[in-house]
């Protein structure tokens, strides 16, 4: 099935799909907000974020708010395009 080739392996996990979904409609979302949206544990979220960052799908920004660090994320152009392709592939599969 050639259609399956277009499905991106990087987006197989629900958590990663969620992260990308949130980031295509919002710029700079911080870790806590992301956790609230996705309802996952810190460790789980962090590992998926790491994977997406390594693929250069998301950009990471760390800053100090008072004494705490705040980490925020943004989708890169590459990430947006990859995600869009993935959604298109999903939709094609659905239409058969």
């Amino acid at each position: 099935m050639s259609l399956l080739q277009h499905l991106n392996k990087d987006f197989e996990s629900r958590v990663r799909l969620g992260i990308m979904s949130v980031l295509v409609v919002n710029t700079w979302v911080d870790f806590l907000e992301m956790k609230e949206h996705l309802q996952v544990t810190d460790g789980n979220l962090a590992s998926h974020i790491n994977a997406l960052e390594q693929k250069k799908y998301i950009e990471v920004k760390k800053e100090f708010v008072g004494k705490k660090t705040k980490t925020s994320y943004k989708a890169t152009k590459v990430g947006r395009e990859a995600f869009e392709k993935h959604i298109n592939a999903l939709e094609k599969l659905l239409r058969g």
Binding site: S21, V29, L38
Partner: peptide, 21 residues
């Protein structure tokens, strides 16, 4: 398989909606 795809798309839509509206 098809159900998975449907669930994926639904999840994507839900996350987009919930995080922006």
């Amino acid at each position: 398989m098809i159900q998975d795809v449907k669930d994926d798309l639904q999840h994507i839509r839900k996350m987009m909606e919930q995080s922006s509206r």
